[in-house]
Design a protein around this nucleic acid. Structure first.
Lengths: 214, 214
DNA sequence: CCGTTCGTGTCACTCGGTGTCAAGACGCTA
DNA sequence: TAGCGTCTTGACACCGAGTGACACGAACGG
């Protein structure tokens, strides 16, 4: 069984909407991800070489780097869709909603999906948060989400992100909430409820997010 | 490498506040930093090897790594004290001050110092913000500051950082402001006033930072 | 049947980073 | 002034991440 992306299951069509080559590529990605997860989560990030991961998936080191930009990428990719999800969710929220509510939903949807998926996601998050190299890459990704969220928010509120500090600050607040919830959830070994934590976090942030003069 | 001739004169006459070895070490650090700055800012981060930096300072590659943990470190070190400064400033603020004012001062002091320092600091910041590898390391450092600020804030407000989300969120907000100001300052090539930007940013954040129910 | 394209493995290479060791500079003491 | 322990350094070997070049084989189209 391939690893299951937590967001939405890929639609199985009777016709091959995707080519054979495409499915083969996906197969290699899955195999590589599987091998990386098994090795990295049990032995630690630094104790495993790319050669070993590649061997575990039955391919060469060179092929590994044709699919992943770096050794960190294999793990961090797991959370990449999360970031894209945040922006997509924000874009889908009704325009009438105040920023705090819209951002709370945007953040909590991927977070809840992450919480439901359980063990795999939890181990990924824990590995990332306690491995410096992975943490750095994760933060890098988060900085990209920051850009995207800022743009989306500026568009949504019809503000100029170059002159106005609010969009970037609001996006930063939302991501701070995101990171805080993720950390709590990780530290509690998945026991804490991401949605409840998110609600609590945004209760703190709301006065600034929804301030009329902001 | 150039040795200062005057250092041989002070044998026993004047007691050395810092040892000779200490000053030699500092000299190497300075030389290395100087060489790294000259090369990295003109040719780009990836176009310069550690060997070249070391050669520019007249030492070996091995010695470079005895002074700096990584190639990124030589640049990011520049901003390390900034982070420590934020926490120190916060600790020095009177307890009567509301969080938004205390954090604003804590952030703006190092930021202003950075602005005054002029060219060198500006080039460092610009290099960091536009080089992915450096940016990642910078964010890593910032995550450490986040921990420290959270602890300091929890202590200051007598809150339990394990149960209460506020300290971590407030620290995150302050650092978001910090990052935003830094980015604006960098993009404006140093023309923008860090203190004014900081004030504007905290005006946005204040409703959440000072909310009574938070 | 042939030519093209694509994915792959192999090889060689660069560069960041580390462990090891011998040599030199310095401070201290006799 | 000689001797000794400490600290720093450079030289060297080594590992692992990441890349470029190239040749090989499978799939596809004519």
């Amino acid at each position: 069984m391939t690893y299951a992306p937590w967001r939405y299951h890929r639609r199985v069509t009777s016709r091959p909407a995707v080519s054979l080559a495409e499915r083969k590529r996906q197969l290699v990605v899955d195999e590589l991800t599987e091998a990386a997860f098994g090795l990295l989560t049990t032995q630690g990030f630094d104790a495993v070489t790319v050669d070993e991961i590649a061997a575990g998936a039955g391919v060469s080191k060179r092929t590994f780097f044709r699919y992943f930009a770096s050794k960190e990428d294999v793990i961090v990719r797991f959370l990449a869709e999360l970031g894209a999800g945040i922006r997509a969710e924000l874009a889908a929220r009704p325009a009438s909603e105040p920023p705090s509510a819209a951002l709370r939903h945007a953040v909590s949807v991927p977070l809840a999906a992450c919480g439901e998926h359980g063990d795999r996601a939890l181990r990924a998050v824990q590995l990332i948060l306690r491995t410096p190299a992975l943490h750095a890459r994760f933060l890098e990704r988060q900085a990209e989400w920051h850009e995207g969220l800022t743009a989306e928010l500026a568009y949504r509120l019809d503000r100029d992100p170059a002159a106005d500090l609010y969009p970037r600050l609001a996006a930063g607040m939302a991501l701070t909430a995101f990171g805080t919830v993720l950390e709590r959830w990780s530290d509690s070994d998945g026991a804490a409820d991401p949605t409840a934590l998110t609600a609590r976090a945004f209760a703190v942030l709301a006065p600034a997010l929804d301030a009329p003069a902001a």
